[in-house]
Write a protein that binds this DNA or RNA. Structure first.
Lengths: 237, 237
DNA sequence: ACCCTGCTTCGCCCTGCCCCGAAGCATCGC
DNA sequence: GCGATGCTTCGGGGCAGGGCGAAGCAGGGT
């Protein structure tokens, strides 16, 4: 039998997220960008030395991966699965917290990124539109696109073939603010990155209000609003 | 602006799961039963006084609810959402943990309960069978059942109407051991409870091997194997 | 070559909290 | 009534670990 006093994997992994500074770092990385240790230190509100220790633990725990480049070290979440856990846990926390220094009434429902795909109002609306019209239908372990869905998405700059190739089993990620699924997986990533590079979406500076929203806010540009309306019949209010 | 040193809801909630004793308690409650403080103390491997403190914190944090009855106090998970978070986090932890006192190779994939519905091999197989035959199709925020699916399920003792009534948005819960969705929500609950009372499934004592599997193991009885084969064409190996 | 910047390692302090034993309340059985 | 059981609150001890400053080690610019 194993040591009964051992933490166990669940507690060990939870402990990695249980520190305020580390939680802020993880929340910041939910924007999908790779951030340097210095940036993360500032975000977390600790001195670089402390941040370095935290990042080492997160990396050793497998929650983040580090990419050294020159004298910078870039940190990002290790996988979509890690992002999903943080998203889910953050949603539960936000709904549970009776102590409410964090108004999750309105700001939290805004459109945002969840690791590398769209979440919030926009993410959910997109998911409903695509599945509601039958352009996309879930099958066990992935998606199939109708011919119309394929051309519609292509018109918005989404390379469906490449997305499908990478679309290892596209869970629809549960959106905690809207309580409906949004589009994750390879397809979600492809859509978000296509629209970001096309200038239909842009990142908002997003202040420093930590935790669930740090560095994750996005907005639809006028171009994007027009494109989504014409291409998908989606009203991005 | 709020106090920048405040833990934040994410860290606070994660901290509740970050203690070994509390994690063991939560894992035990994943079996769906309401457990007394004494049982949980024994499971967690701590003295009743310590367990009482932990349970108070879990309750105050909204992860569990307490139901006093006579001189016993029964504790269970507060919601399906809490269960989903624990399941997801446990899955991530099990796959990440490079330190492996916890073999998650085989035992973890066994059929088990996830809060109040089926998970593991059986849960995933069931989900695939029901959706694969078109008996159940996901629609935005729930399910619809075909006529054939309705009669098939009714034949196994599942009251579909009642299930649907309670089937507030049946996310398919992601199964971490099989990496495929299984059936959660009101329908998943109804199926599991129907088959448990009918004697098609039974709980396994489940040793005390804590964390992800404590008190969650189930097995298909000979009766159940026959019923599932005849009723649903499902081979419960 | 020089310095500057970004990051890490080290040593120390100190808070938080996990644990237990003892005592205090409830509830049930007799 | 009485004692037994289940659980809680209280006080004290001990350890993990989070925080910082100082020093060390890269990589880059000039």
């Amino acid at each position: 039998m194993t040591d009964p006093t051992a933490p166990g994997p669940l507690a060990a992994t939870a402990a990695l997220m249980a520190d305020p500074a580390r939680a802020r770092m993880l929340a910041a990385m939910m924007g999908g960008e790779a951030l340097t240790a210095g940036e993360l230190a500032r975000i977390a509100g600790v001195v670089p030395a402390t941040a370095s220790g935290h990042l080492a633990r997160l990396a050793e725990g497998g929650l983040i991966v580090v990419h050294a480049q020159g004298r910078h070290r870039y940190h990002r979440l290790a996988s979509e699965e890690v992002a999903a856990v943080i998203e889910t846990l953050g949603g539960l926390a936000a709904r549970i917290a009776p102590l409410r220094p964090w108004k999750h009434g309105d700001a939290a429902r805004q459109s945002r990124l969840c690791w590398n795909h769209l979440a919030g109002r926009l993410g959910v609306a997109l998911h409903q539109r695509l599945t509601g019209e039958g352009w996309l239908t879930p099958v066990s372990g992935g998606w199939t696109a109708s011919a119309e869905g394929r051309t519609r998405l292509a018109a918005t700059g989404v390379d469906l073939d490449q997305a499908m190739k990478a679309a290892r089993f596209a869970c629809d990620c549960m959106d905690w603010s809207e309580r409906r699924p949004h589009l994750a997986g390879g397809l979600g990533k492809e859509i978000a990155s296509a629209w970001l590079t096309r200038g239909w979406l842009r990142r908002l500076p997003g202040a420093g209000d930590a935790d669930v929203l740090a560095r994750r806010r996005i907005a639809v540009t006028p171009d994007g609003a027009r494109g989504l309306r014409e291409g998908l019949g989606l009203d991005a209010a």
